[in-house]
């Protein structure tokens, strides 16, 4: 756990390998929490998953205060990945593919509507387009959308004003909406 601080430091400094390892480490942690929350584990409910993971890491001394911004950005990307992995693997399952999605397998999977899945995937694609021209804005969407952070919280970790973030959000939302309907 303590290595996370080090990884974050290196990742911020542009170390690609560290970045990948950070991603992998957090991915496992968040997926675990996600599965726990899925089962309605009461201990996991008070805060969002990402907060939960953050508190845990911070409690372990794995994170320093100035790591927060970077942490939430990475965590949000990961949550996005988890959502997409989940939807894709479920789609594969429905097609009869042999995909292992053990931790998230519940009867709820059968209940989801196919077209909503497609919306989620379309949103992911739109977000991909946004990331190409404005990675920072895409990051904001990820944090809001997948990490479940309020704009106020994002403002705090990014040390920006909430007003300017609101503006960013509105712009990002418009971009995504346009891309979702344009295709």
């Amino acid at each position: 756990m303590a290595e996370i601080t080090e990884l974050i430091g290196k990742a911020r400094g542009g170390d690609r390998q560290a970045s990948e390892r950070l991603f992998a480490t957090l991915y496992d942690e968040l997926r675990r929490l996600a599965a726990g929350q899925l089962r309605g584990d009461p201990g996991m409910r008070a805060t969002s998953l990402v907060h939960e993971a953050y508190l845990k890491l911070a409690h372990h001394g794995a994170l320093e205060v100035n790591d927060r911004g970077h942490y939430f950005a990475v965590a949000a990307r990961i949550m996005r990945q988890i959502v997409i992995d989940h939807v894709r693997s479920r789609a594969a399952l429905r097609r009869g593919g042999n995909v292992q999605i053990a931790p998230l397998t519940t009867t709820a999977l059968q209940a989801v509507a196919q077209d909503r899945d497609e919306e989620v995937l379309a949103l992911d694609a739109a977000l991909g387009s946004l990331a190409e021209i404005d990675p920072q804005l895409a990051g904001l969407v990820e944090m809001r959308f997948y990490a479940g952070l309020e704009l106020g919280e994002i403002a705090e970790v990014q040390e920006r004003s909430e007003r300017s973030l609101k503006r960013d959000w509105r712009r990002a939302r418009a971009f995504l909406q346009r891309h979702l309907t344009a295709e």
Partner: peptide, 8 residues
């Protein structure tokens, strides 16, 4: 939207 995804 995505049932089975841990929400916020």
């Amino acid at each position: 939207v995505v049932v089975g995804i841990p929400g916020v």
